[in-house]
Amino acid sequence: MDWKRDLVERLRKSVPGGYRAAGPEASEPTALAGIALCAVGELDHAQRAGNWLAAIQSDDGSVGVSAAQPTPCWPTSLAILMWKAFGEGNNADDYQSNIQHAIAWALADRGRPNKRQPHVGHDTTLVGWSWAADTHSWIEPTAMFVLALKAVGLSQHERTREAVRLLVDRLLPAGGCNYGNTIVLGQTLLAHVQPTGLAMMGLAGEDNGDSRIAFSLDYLERKLASEPTTASLCYGLLGLAAHNRRPAEADSWLSAVYERVVSQEVSLYTLALLALATADEYPLSPDQDRALAGLSEKAWNQP
């Protein structure tokens, strides 16, 4: 069987699922798998992911990391993306209430800003999203929420705009991202592929001439040629694809990784990342023209 078809087949059988093959179901892998299944038109199977996420959504609209752990709530962003992708694929308003509650939670949730500190390079006053409640904003959760808000037509919302500024501010001078710091005590931190890929996804479609964005895309191209590991490869490819720079070798890299990972027990998380990175079309394009009913910028900007 063609490896891409085999991948989708495994994905269908595994959703909802977790970070380990035999591990408990978790929100991030399930949401990513749902988005990937929507991208290949497997809506019946994607709905299992959507229903699972809806079942664990808290009354305040947030989605925790698993059914057993309602906090922290950073996967709320991914649940929004999954439900929105399902609605797009199904041309219907499924999960609209879930999305609206989740957006309300997301817009109220704020990473903790700090006073500017001379030994820290980034602008600590900018507000994005954090991993856990009442902690500082970091690149990956902020990028996830930027993607979610853009997907539902809130690209111009003040929270999205500030978060985009944060993502640019956290890029390293020569390109790429650390987990979120840039310069500490005079030293520039190390770049990594996964946060860089996510940041590039969040910055797709932005009219921003900051040279660090171009440097970051160059960084991803260089690093992906050196056989990165699964999650890094997938996020790196997605970051490049978001800027129409998916490398010609992408499928051969993914095929090689797929062959390796399925030789042992493979998690839904890994399958979902591979499926997203394999999609013929970049699966997380901002859809600014198709905001959900009732989600106008004006409505959400009102106090």
Binding site: Q69, P72, R112, S130, W131, A132, W138
Partner: peptide
């Protein structure tokens, strides 16, 4: 676990 405490484990720093 990062899934609870983040990357970095900022809950602890605060």
């Amino acid at each position: 676990p990062g899934i609870q405490y983040g990357w970095p484990k900022n809950v602890l720093h605060h």
